[in-house]
Design a protein around this nucleic acid. Structure first.
Lengths: 358, 358
DNA sequence: CTGAAAGCGCTTACAG
DNA sequence: CTGAAAGCGCTTACAG
């Protein structure tokens, strides 16, 4: 009489089978579209499934190893619009493909922490890892990642990585595009607030900036180069340092929108009116870009597409590893198409009010 | 030789049992701290679990109905800082308790859509529902919710609801507090941008605003009352309407931070300098509150605490329904402590630069 | 084209 | 304090 929580009105494959007068196996074959079931049987079973509201138990499918894989996501719990967007999009993309996302928070952004969380994720059954900043950089090259033995794909890295697939934009080109725009608009003392030194995407953007200056014969001045940590607060500090320079910049390129918002903030606080007195550009095109005044000219990373592509890569890698073991069992050896290891998506330079118009 | 994806190096309860020279049941009892295992056995088993890196299979636990419940979350895919924060905090709180969160997107904010998604969630195995705005209001009172037969708890509602537990702040008091502050700072033509008419939390805040005016002998003027839809764009429109009034307001109370950011934006666009020319207040204390200039004076809803409390209520309700069926089976009848149906948490009025200081 | 059997990893009664 | 047995809902070989 007593039913466990699971049993709550659950229609099982047996119920459907019995009602349809077939075996559970046949129902399973109908549900999974294996094409092994006759047309008439299939139609009848489908109708009954619909009528009874049957939904396969994910738990049971997992148990027999037939469920879609579970992918592990490590996230850093900081107030970052970009990370929370990325987190959300990955979550949506995974759900779309019917994958289960296992998210786990890393207390700090250190290789050790990252490795520990990755390990715990894999032990709990994660079949693959999806890395969002800064975890790809933290984990790449470590023995931990190799030991885990699960495929990993990273989003928004600076470039390709040897031990995982990557989905990203061309950060060098993006940095170059922003600097080119600023130069085209007549700014000449262009400062840059980079991300933390270790972040190679930030380094790539800095290089793009330098190449733009060089192309236009503008000398690179180290004092116009300030380092931030991607946070609003560090953006504020960096901007104040820049604006206190004997010859302050007329434009500031920030490595993300949060720091760009801070640059605007610091400018307002001094009574400067952007973009007249100071141009500011962001990066990522997060929600804050359109909330601040003036709205930020920024680089849109296609986060949603990146998430979708990353999930696709994961599905592919997972499928391939299954196929590989099957082939091995069958005695075959080669012929497996290589997964693209580095997907580079287009970015968009979004022009808004924080840079003066042409 | 061939192993399914599930089998990837998984250490099972059997492996541990064998190595420890006990039965799987005993290992299970150690893992689940049932207290039925002797001290020495427990210590030995624990050591072996640690050594082998055993992690129980959630799938298997689910299958036998012993796993922590799965809770369904319906979300609306709009660009709302508050909703994305709430989503994130609920996700974190659920993970903290080891609950599995099943999130599903509703295409539109209609009762039908909401009911359909809720049903699909429950059919897929959700044991309970966690409702974030606007789904509690959409679902309350509908036969759908009653039919589902799972406990539901809602976050950030205007008041208690008859068919679900609620975790919220006192919206009337919050509206009153903001208006009181504005009046104390000398503002007298205080406009308000509300949420959509249907939203009762918005109505409650409006009432709080009215009561503050009344308490200070300031007449309520309907023309100072504009309706928004919680979006930045509608905030912009509402603000322009207010600022175009023959006698424009000297302060604007917005129903959320996004619309407050829009009010600031519209003010800047006209060359007004806040808070000198116009005070603006927000609601929710989301990330944008500190990104805009000047930073928003706003009401902080304790989203994180709300999420935690909501999850706790759910766990409690789930446990109780299990206990209830157990008691029923044993022939008992009453004595079940009622779950608190309406938890009211404290809000905080956060003063920042968008209102002039005392 | 369809099915009977075994088993995924775990826990719940039920015995000792 | 400990264990043998049954079963959760599904799918994978293997037969017909």
């Amino acid at each position: 009489m007593r039913r466990s929580r699971q049993q709550r009105d659950r229609v099982t494959i047996q119920d459907v089978a019995q009602r349809a007068g077939v075996s559970a196996m046949t129902v399973s074959n109908v549900v999974n579209r294996t094409g092994k079931v006759g047309e008439s049987t299939r139609a009848r079973v489908r109708a009954i499934i619909e009528e009874m509201g049957y939904v396969p138990s994910q738990a049971a499918r997992h148990l027999v190893g037939a469920a879609p894989a579970r992918i592990g996501l490590i996230y850093l719990d900081i107030e970052s619009m970009f990370l929370s967007l990325a987190h959300g999009e990955v979550s949506a993309a995974a759900a779309e493909k019917g994958l289960q996302l296992m998210v786990r928070r890393a207390g700090a952004a250190t290789p050790d922490k990252a490795a520990a969380v990755a390990l715990s994720l894999v032990r709990s059954g994660a079949d693959a890892l999806l890395l969002i900043p800064p975890f790809a950089e933290l984990l790449t090259g470590t023995p931990a990642l190799r030991t885990l033995g699960v495929p990993a794909v990273a989003i928004a890295t600076a470039g390709p990585l040897p031990d995982m697939a990557t989905v990203r934009i061309d950060n060098h080109a993006a940095g170059r595009a922003v600097a080119d725009l600023l130069i085209a608009r007549g700014y000449r003392r262009i400062a840059i607030i980079t991300g933390p030194g270790g972040h190679s995407d930030s380094v790539a953007r800095l290089d793009g900036y330098k190449s733009a200056l060089a192309a236009h014969g503008i000398p690179f001045r180290p004092e116009l180069c300030a380092e931030g940590l991607f946070s609003f607060e560090t953006g504020l500090i960096a901007t104040d340092i820049l604006l206190n320079l004997p010859q302050p910049p007329d434009a500031i390129m920030a490595a993300n929108d949060d720091m760009a918002a801070a640059a605007l903030w610091a400018a307002h606080r001094r009574g400067l009116v952007p973009p007249r007195d100071l141009a500011v550009t962001g990066f990522d095109d997060t929600l804050v870009a359109t909330r601040v005044w003036p709205a930020l000219t920024t680089v849109r990373q296609p986060i949603k597409d990146m998430a979708v592509r990353a999930i696709d890569l994961l599905v592919e890698a997972l499928g391939r590893s299954a196929a590989a073991s099957g082939a091995a069992a069958g005695g075959m050896v080669a012929g497996i198409a290589p997964t693209p290891r580095d997907v580079v998506l287009d970015f968009t330079l979004v022009e808004r009010g924080s840079v003066r118009p042409a």
